[in-house]
Measured scan of single mutants.
Amino acid sequence: MSHKQIYYSDKYDDEEFEYRHVMLPKDIAKLVPKTHLMSESEWRNLGVQQSQGWVHYMIHEPEPHILLFRRPLPKKPKK
C-alpha cells in the first residue's frame, strides 16, 4: 500500500481532546469499513501511522476517505 499518499493534518485541540484528521488515497479508502469505527489494529493495517492513544471517533459520511481521530489531553494538575 502507498503510505506516501496518506495525508496527516496538523493537530488541533479543545479543552478535552487533541484531534487530527487523516486523508487516505482512493485505493486505501475503499478498504475502510462503512459499518463501524475502526480499532487501532484496523487503521494501522491500512497503513495509518501515528502514536498510540488515537481513537477513530467519527465517520464523516460525505467524505469517507477522511478519518477523524482524537485522544484525551493530559490532565492538568490542579493548583
Rank of each mutant, 00 (worst) to 15 (best):
K4W: 05
H36K: 10
L68H: 11
I6Q: 05
E16T: 14
Y12L: 01
H21C: 08
G53C: 04
H36V: 01
W43Y: 00
L67C: 04
E61F: 08
I59A: 08
H56A: 01
L68A: 07
I66E: 02
S39C: 10
I66C: 07
Y19P: 01
H36I: 02
P33I: 04
V22H: 02
W43K: 03
L46S: 03
L46C: 00
K30T: 09
K75S: 13
T35L: 05
L73P: 05
D10A: 14
K4Y: 09
S2L: 12
K79P: 14
K11D: 04
E16G: 10
L68Y: 15
V22T: 04
Q49N: 12
I28S: 05
S2M: 15
G47C: 02
L31G: 07
Y7L: 08
D14E: 07
W43E: 02
R20Y: 06
S2R: 15
L37K: 07
M23N: 07
N45I: 09
R71E: 00
H65M: 07
D14R: 05
Q49V: 12
H60C: 12
E40P: 08
D27P: 09
S2N: 15
L24E: 00
R20W: 02
A29L: 07
Y7F: 06
H36Q: 07
E16Q: 14
Q5C: 13
K4N: 08
W54G: 03
N45L: 10
F69A: 02
H65R: 10
Q52S: 15
K34H: 08
G53N: 10
D27V: 07
V48M: 05
R20C: 13
L24C: 05
Y8R: 04
Y8W: 02
P62M: 13
P74D: 14
L68C: 09
K79C: 13
Y8P: 06
L24I: 11
M1T: 13
R71A: 01
V32Y: 04
Y57I: 02
S2G: 15
M58H: 10
W43N: 05
D27L: 00
P62T: 15
Q50Y: 02
M23S: 12
P62Q: 15
S41D: 13
P25V: 03
Q5M: 12
S51N: 08
I6K: 07
D13I: 15
Q50R: 03
E63G: 07
G53E: 11
K76M: 12
H21E: 15
T35W: 05
R71T: 01
V32M: 03
L68P: 02
S39H: 09
M23I: 15
P64C: 05
D10Q: 14
P74A: 13
V48Y: 00
E42R: 00
T35Q: 12
D27A: 09
K78W: 10
K76T: 11
K4L: 14
S39I: 06
Y7N: 13
R70P: 06
H56V: 00
D10Y: 07
P74S: 11
L24S: 04
M38H: 01
L67Q: 02
H56E: 03
P25N: 09
